[in-house]
Amino acid sequence: MNASSGFKGATLPCALLALFSTGLAVADVKPDSGDYAALPAGTDLALLYQQNPRIEKSYFGGRKAADNLDLDLTVGVLRLVHFTEFFDTGLIWDPQIVIPFGRQDLGASDEKTSGLGDITFGATVWTLADMERNRHLGWSMFITAPTGSDKNEGFALSNNRWAADFQVGYVHGFNEKWTWDVIAETEFYGKQRDTDAKRAPLLQLHNHLRYNFTPATSVALSYRHNWGSRERLDGQTLETSHDNGTVGISATTMLGKQWQVMGQYWRDVSVRSGAMTDNSLQFRLAYIY
């Protein structure tokens, strides 16, 4: 495969293997609206996500590298979160674990793969948690371990490398109705374990403008953008730097005192490098106890 030509001349399975191994990361649980609002110590959350992205195209250096991929993914994510006091400091933190699992169906080559993805663990510490005014400032670190199935077989949930993700998120409640969430994120990567390919850090910025119809029901308009994450092996570029943007809309409501449901629609609006998600429907069910 001539990496610098953006998969041209490669067979489709080889191109897809390179595409997935350089960071499709569809199972990544990105910060949603409200995620950086701290909850009282002693609160526990069990969250179940379902993601259904549809992918037809991939890009390399701003040029289309593959078309008609006909890739459907059904991704589930189990996330367990515990809010507690941070070592007698009076601050709140939330140690947690994220376990992705799922199935991918590549219609272009009639290939099907399923299994567990790479597990993530980490926490957020809040240095500001003003519940009354809805003002929150949290600092996060997450570590992803290469535990997934079929690491070298193009399974989108398995990246076969260690990663460290650092985030800082701020929630600003303007009044009872309007809230703005902004999260800055950078992710650092170890070498891919089977090839020793090196990836540059990825920078991301997340924005959520939320309108609360009631204390229990809200909608949010979101925009995410990421830069960087260029990947190289033996002097050749496997993936060019990102400059990708995504828009989304979500609706969230409480079902009683302990259950919350969220529905989302996401779509990539600009992709310089990597897979382009034509549309993705996502659902999240949370149990609060």
Results as ranks from 00 to 15, higher is better:
228 G>M: 01
242 H>V: 00
216 A>L: 12
263 G>K: 03
170 Y>R: 06
217 T>L: 13
229 S>P: 01
250 S>Y: 11
247 V>H: 05
202 L>C: 02
212 N>C: 06
257 K>Y: 05
158 S>I: 11
226 N>Y: 08
195 T>W: 10
285 L>C: 01
244 N>H: 00
184 A>M: 06
248 G>I: 04
234 D>Y: 12
262 M>E: 14
269 V>Q: 02
155 F>L: 09
249 I>H: 01
287 Y>L: 02
255 L>S: 04
230 R>Q: 11
157 L>W: 08
243 D>F: 01
177 K>Y: 12
265 Y>L: 15
190 G>Y: 04
166 F>V: 11
222 S>H: 10
212 N>S: 14
175 N>H: 07
182 V>Q: 10
160 N>L: 03
224 R>A: 09
218 S>V: 01
207 N>H: 05
199 R>G: 06
155 F>Q: 07
256 G>D: 04
196 D>E: 15
162 W>Y: 14
175 N>Q: 05
172 H>F: 13
214 T>E: 09
233 L>I: 14
259 W>T: 05
241 S>E: 09
220 A>C: 07
157 L>C: 08
199 R>Y: 01
251 A>S: 14
238 L>D: 13
168 V>D: 02
255 L>T: 05
250 S>D: 14
231 E>L: 06
283 F>C: 06
180 W>E: 14
203 L>M: 13
256 G>R: 03
214 T>H: 05
226 N>F: 08
202 L>Q: 06
165 D>F: 07
198 K>Y: 07
258 Q>V: 11
267 R>H: 12
262 M>K: 15
257 K>I: 00
186 T>H: 08
251 A>G: 15
235 G>E: 03
245 G>T: 00
264 Q>I: 10
261 V>T: 10
267 R>I: 08
169 G>N: 01
233 L>Y: 14
289 Y>G: 15
196 D>P: 03
281 L>R: 07
214 T>G: 06
260 Q>P: 00
192 Q>A: 09
281 L>F: 15
267 R>D: 04
210 R>S: 15
169 G>E: 02
192 Q>L: 08
167 Q>F: 07
260 Q>Y: 00
249 I>C: 07
237 T>D: 03
203 L>D: 14
223 Y>T: 03
200 A>T: 05
239 E>W: 11
187 E>A: 09
165 D>E: 09
231 E>H: 03
288 I>P: 00
273 S>L: 03
204 Q>G: 10
166 F>A: 11
266 W>S: 15
166 F>Y: 10
284 R>H: 08
189 Y>S: 00
166 F>R: 04
258 Q>Y: 09
259 W>M: 06
159 N>M: 14
188 F>L: 09
264 Q>P: 05
274 G>S: 04
252 T>R: 11
162 W>S: 11
261 V>A: 13
213 F>A: 02
269 V>K: 02
220 A>V: 09
186 T>C: 06
